[in-house]
Structures are given as C-alpha cells and as structure tokens.
Amino acid sequence: MAAIVCNNLTKRYGKTTALQNVNLSLEPGRIIGLAGPNGSGKTTLIKLIQRMLVPTQGQIMINGSEPSPETKAHIAYLPDRDFLPDWMKVCALMDLYGKYYGDFDRASAEQMLANLAIDTTQTFKKLSKGTREKVQLILTMSRKAEVYLLDEPIAGVDPAARDYIIRTIISNYNPEALVLISTHLIADIEAVLDEVIFLKQGQIVLHENTDDLRTRVNMSVDEYFREVFKC
C-alpha cells in the first residue's frame, strides 16, 4: 500500500491557489525530495499531509486513512522553524516526546545528543540556533515513524551542519518508512534521494526516480532543477 496518496488535491487561500490538482502516490521505504522555489506549495503540501490544513478540494490518504490524530501518531514532522517550547530543558523535551509518541526511541536520542556533546540540562532557548535545529532533528528522527515529513531541514544552516543533518536522516530513519524532504537546496541532498518531485506554482511538473532522471536528461538533478526553475 502507498504511504501517501493525493487525489486531485487543491488548496486555496482566498483567491490564491497554493496547490492545484495534485495527484501523487508515494511508496514506503523511499527517500523523496520535494523540490521547488519559494512559494511553490511545498510547505502547504506537507501541512495538508500533517492535517494542519484542510484541503479545499481533493483527498489525501496516509497508509489508507484520511489525515487524523491517528495518522499523526505515525508521522514524524520537522517544520521549517523553531517549534518546541523554548522554556523547557532538552531532557524535558525528551520526556515530552516519550509521553506523546509511543514510537520515540529515547536511548537513540540520548546517544545522538551525547555524540554532539549537547547539554540536556540546558533550556532550549539558551542553545545556539544551529544546536536548536540539531535537537529538533534528533527528536524527530528518534521516532520510529512510518512517514517522516522534513520541511527545509537544511535551509539556513552552515555546510558542516548540513552534512550532519543529512547523515542523521540517513542513519536514523526507519528503513521501511517514507521520508519526504522539502528543499530548494537539491545539490546537498541529491545523493540520498530515491525519487524527486518538482513543484511549480502549486502543480507537479515532475515526479521521477532520480537515477532514471539523471540518465534521461544527462545531467544531475540539481542542474535539471536549475534549468526547470530558471528565472
């Protein structure tokens, strides 16, 4: 069964159409890049899958069920901003994740935090921006989820941190799960992607296996992305 299916999915904000008749079928066990320039609808699509938005038209199915509190229990979501209560200590945040998510692997999170020498007794707001992003990623990837939704996980961090984030994703995700990574920084993650989706003005202009795409267009996904979205 497909992990995520979108049928004629449309989302409008007033007169602005963020997504238009999106049809998708994403299989588990794949790492898929959701690429497109700013405002192309990437975050809207992820929010719809996570049921933070309600579609204007169309339907989404997560492992055969419509988005609901039950599907959220199996989705690990990393938004594109700081989202954790910043007055809490890192250890308290782990308690919080353990309390709400049955699939949270605390030992794995503690190990990753220890590897980075992150003090778990520090309050979240006292950490540097880069460390906060790493803590959020670690907590998200420490869940043994069926679907991972990572919204711009490498935007706004230095190249060394990008490498760490990509390594963390690759070495910690549940291999039977679907990983959907939204980004406009294709070059940094191209090597790990099984498939790529190009979103342009709310519509899917490409959904293809990355190896097939490279063979077909005889260029890297990043080069092709730059060509498709050339200004």
Partner: peptide, 17 residues
Amino acid sequence: GNLLGREGYFMFSLPVK
C-alpha cells in the same frame, strides 16, 4: 502562543483532537 503561534507546529503534530 502555544496553539496558534510557533509552538502550534508541535501541538498540532500530536496525535490529539
């Protein structure tokens, strides 16, 4: 702040109505 602000991204990820 907690529900409709930045932390809402966490709250609305919880498996709760």
